[in-house]
Structures are given as structure tokens and as C-alpha cells.
Design a protein around this nucleic acid. Structure first.
Lengths: 121, 121
DNA sequence: CACTATAATGTGTGATACACACTAATGTCA
DNA sequence: TGACATTAGTGTGTATCACACATTATAGTG
């Protein structure tokens, strides 16, 4: 309800942006179908709307990072996704970049902000 | 030149999204003008295009996180920005959310992906 | 058998924000 | 004087995410 809370919520959403792909790629180490990803990410503390995930999966497949196939034998038809070779390579690179970014930002955030406490007002 | 490199570059850019605001807010602990932010962030390993930063600053000011004033006494007129009270509050919250997010993702990324090495094919 | 919940996959739209290219002015130094 | 750095800004295109909505199929309940 607070204005400031709303601003923070927006910024947090902006922060999550992009990390979703990292998380999804990571979870696709073994084959999964969309709905199971929604659930396992939810459990991991990363809620994702199905309306966000499914287009994401299609996008990643079009880029060649994922491969999918319909599995019709089971109780319900499900579309299983798995990392392609390219996808695995990209995941490695992306993970490294993510960790570098975290270190960079930690350096900024941990830095004393008050080394020059004041200037003239 | 590689296709895969281009994909990674795009995803990294997506990762950076949102973190820019965190970094900028953090650097505004003491008053700064736009161009100096471009330079200090560059040194810190976070290059930012002036065409990205200036609209960002105006946006943050419109949201009430920043306050600015023209400084005409110096060699060149510069617009100095500083955190407002709200801005400082938001920065605290955002920093906490960021760190929580980093922990959550680390838990995902550090998890062994090969606990169930194979399924039936 | 109708009705509903839930599993499972998708589509369409709108808000937002970032990158990039561009403009424009002033100071500095060779 | 001319080139370059400094400093601030605008405008446009594109991509992503959230949200609401749609669709099919199965299982369960009265």
C-alpha cells in the first residue's frame, strides 16, 4: 500500500529479470516439463507465472538452447524440455558471468559509503 | 562473431538490467553528477552508456528517490544528484532483496545437477 | 452423468526499461 | 583554430515480463 513499497516491488521485479533464464536453464539439467518447472522453482523461492515460463521456453528453444519433445505415453501429454549442447555451453558461460557480476556488485555495496561523509550543502 | 557468444551477450545484458539502479543508488551516497557516475561505474567494472544513465536519473528523481540541483559556480554547470530520504530507504530494502536473491540463486546453481544422472530414454 | 478442481500448455496485450544513435553546448589544450 | 573531452539531454526500437485469458484432458464428487 505504501508508495515506497510499490517502488521497491517494481525494482525487485526488474532485478529478477534475466535471472529467470539462468534459473530455468539450470533446472533443465535433467529433462523437465513446463508445469514441473513452475512447481520446483516455486519451491526454490522463485515463483514464476506459467504465462511467463511458457513463452520463455519457446524463446529459448528457438534460440537453440533447448530441445523439446512431446511425451504422450504418460497419463497426460507433456512437453519435455532438455538442454541442447549449445544450451549447456551457454549455461556455463552465463553462470560465470553471473558470478562475476555478483562479485562486482558486492564490491560496490560493501564499500563504505561514508568515506567522505559530507560536502558543503 | 559466434552465434552463441551473441546469445550470451544478450542474456548478460538482461542480467545487468535492474542491477544498474542498485549500483547507481549506491554510488549516490555522496552527491554526484551524471558524468562522474559514468566514470566511476566504468572503473568499478560497470560500464553504462550516458544515454542510459541520464534518463535513469530523471526517472529516479521523478519517483522521489533522488534530489538534484544545478551547480553553476564551477567551471561547467553540473547537475548534482543526491539520495532523498525515501531513496535511502529504498536502497536499503533493495540491497536486502538483492542479497536474498543472490542466496536463492546460489542455492540453485550450487546444487548438484546430476543427483539423478539419467532417466529412461 | 453433470460439475468442478487441477494438471498442463498455450496466446495476447500492455507497461516498462534498456541500449543506441543522435543533438548540443562548453571548456581545454596542442 | 581545431580537435577532443566534458556534460547534459532526447527519441526510437526492441525485448521481456506480468497478468488475464483460453484450451484440453483427467480425476474426483454428488
Amino acid at each position: 500500500m505504501d508508495d515506497r513499497e510499490r517502488i521497491v516491488a517494481g525494482l525487485v521485479q526488474e532485478l529478477r529479470r534475466g535471472t529467470l533464464i539462468l534459473c530455468v536453464l539450470r533446472q533443465l539439467g535433467d529433462n523437465r516439463y513446463g508445469y514441473s518447472l513452475v512447481q520446483s522453482l516455486e519451491e526454490a523461492g522463485i515463483p514464476i507465472d506459467p504465462g511467463t515460463l511458457y513463452p520463455l521456453l519457446r524463446r529459448l528453444e528457438k534460440q537453440g538452447l533447448l530441445e523439446s519433445r512431446w511425451e504422450l505415453e504418460e497419463a497426460r501429454p507433456r512437453r519435455y524440455y532438455g538442454l541442447s549442447e549449445t544450451g549447456a555451453w551457454v549455461l556455463d558461460r552465463l553462470t560465470a558471468e553471473w558470478q562475476a557480476m555478483v562479485r562486482t556488485i558486492r564490491a560496490l555495496v560493501d564499500a563504505e559509503p561514508d568515506t567522505q561523509p559530507k560536502k558543503e550543502e
